[in-house]
Structures are given as C-alpha cells and as structure tokens.
Nucleic acid binder design. Structure first.
Lengths: 149, 149
DNA sequence: TCTTCGTTGATAATAATTATTATTTAATTT
DNA sequence: AAATTAAATAATAATTATTATCAACGAAGA
C-alpha cells in the first residue's frame, strides 16, 4: 500500500461522507485489489492477515456501508451468500456453475448494442439505473482460466 | 386446476423422473401460475392455503428437486434469499430495487442481438449454458406496473 | 393387496447475516 | 493540546434462510 494510494483511498472514503478509519481503508484497498468478487467470509480472511483483531461483524457492517454509499456493489448470485464487487464501471459477469467463479467481462460493443436497444425499447414507470449481462455455464478445465477473444 | 392441467402436470413430473405426489403437483401448479418469482416463504404461504399440513421443509426440498431436474430455475438476486422461476424459456429480468419485484421481459430482437454477439465473441475453456440481461432500477410509481413498449 | 422405497412433516442443525452494546477511535471543540 | 462528542469497532447474541435428520406415510409396481 503506497503513500499515493493511501491518500487516494482517504480521499475516496471522505468524499463519500465516511469517517476515515484504518479498517475501512484496508477493506477498501483489499477490495480494489481483488477481482474475484469475494464473499464476506473470504474478505474477512484476507483482512485478518492485515488486521488480526478485525471482527466479522465489522466486515459485514463496512460492506453494507460501502454499498450504501456507492463505493462497491453487491453481486446477484443464486448461491446462499452475498458477493461484492469494487469495480464500479459497467461490465458483465460470467458465472461458472461448478467453481462458483464470477469473471468480469467488459465489452464496449456489447454495451453499445444493449444501450442502443434499450433506448429504443422504452420501459415505462421505471427509472433505469444499470444493466448487466449474466452469462452462465461451466469451465471445461476448472484448473485453467477462461479466455475471451 | 382443471383435469387437463392435472394430466399435464403428472406427465411433466413423471417425465422428469419424479414420483407424482399431491404436494409436488400443487407446488408445480402454483409456480406455473405465478410470474412474481417468489421466495420459498412466499410459496409456502400460497401452498398452505391449498395443503394446510404442508411443511416449509417440503417446500425447500421440492424446490431443490425441481431445480435439479430442470423444471424451474433459481434466480440470481442481491437479496438475502433465493427466488424461483418456473418459466424455462429464455427471457430477461427487470429488478426494481425498492419493491424487490422481478419482472419478466422477453424480446426476440435482444436475444438475437446478444446471441449473435456471443457467437462472434468466443469464450474459451467455457461451455456456455445461458445468458440473461439483468436490468435494474426503480419503479417511479411503486403502485403501478412497469410498461414495456 | 403387499412390499418397497422415495416422500413428507416435524424438528434440529447449520450457515449467513443482522443487531446489540461496551469500548475505542476519529473529529470537533475548548 | 486536552477535553468532548459522535461515530466505528470488537465481541457476542439474535435472527433469518436454508439444509439435514428421521419416523411415519404414501405412491407404484409385483
């Protein structure tokens, strides 16, 4: 965690009306450095290595506050637990039903395609916030990565 | 529940390798007649009106079995509970973040658009099963319906 | 009808999350 | 810089959602 990052994180938290605490800084930093969309428990394990005294309740509370303030997003899953995403730009998700991985997938063309479609297709009495394509299936070799070309 | 439907449901359950029981028939029928994507608790309330002796555990077990056999689908949500969808054709979902409603939205053009895109965009080491567009936002008047035109 | 085996209902157990509260910490005031 | 205030944290209890267990029951075939 560089000094530059530290300042940036402080600024981000404060800018969202949050009191800057060590716990929040570390949690936010760890989320920023993760693209695996972890659950609370997984985040807890990572943070414990940095702040051994952290409480699981603090993780939950902090995640809730971050979601509320628009710093991170909750991810839609059909599993029994919640997962989080610190990436706030529009992007899609690929779900692997056996490894439970959620892989980011950004594509400008797809985004334009859908955005354009939705512009034509009017949804009345509804204030559209965002859209995301959920692609689901199974990795063929669970040990290897998915490759998008 | 007409006699015709009864026969159809029996056939559907048996056709998926399930023993035909009164509970399963009623649960499947109710799911078929619902497009609100209810949670287990909501389904339980509906079924209790028809089979007062039903147990919540039976609802959960039955839903699990139905999902496993491909009769219904679990829906991805960012809430703390699971929701179910008996509609098995490809369609998309509109999420209202304040009423927690999930509204079906089917559009052939959109489907073609995405299907065509995915055909060009190859995802390696991945066996694609399905895709769905998740649209989220808020109803402007929560008392009224969303209108897609 | 009898038998078999899966299903159901009742309930206990577990997992995930939220709530509570005393203590600690950051920010504010003096 | 010390004192004050208000909010955040840690520890833990409580709640919610879901899954597991098991005796009794019911469906389907012999």
């Amino acid at each position: 965690m560089t000094l530059r990052n530290l300042q940036y994180i402080k600024h981000t938290l404060a800018g969202h009306g949050l009191k800057v605490t060590h716990q929040r800084m570390v949690i936010y930093q760890v989320l920023q450095d993760t693209d695996t969309h972890p659950a609370a428990e997984g985040i807890y394990e990572k943070i414990k290595k940095i702040i051994p005294s952290i409480s699981l309740g603090t993780i939950y509370k902090t995640l809730e506050v971050f979601v509320e303030k628009g710093l991170i997003k909750r991810i839609n899953t059909s599993e029994g637990n919640m997962r989080y995403d610190a990436r706030m730009d529009n992007h899609n998700h690929i779900y692997c039903t056996n490894t439970k991985e959620i892989i980011d997938f950004k594509d400008e063309e797809l985004e334009m395609l859908i955005r354009d479609f939705l512009k034509r297709k009017k949804i009345g009495n509804f204030n559209l916030k965002e859209f995301r394509l959920h692609i689901s299936g199974e990795k063929i070799d669970p040990g290897k990565h998915i490759e998008i070309t």
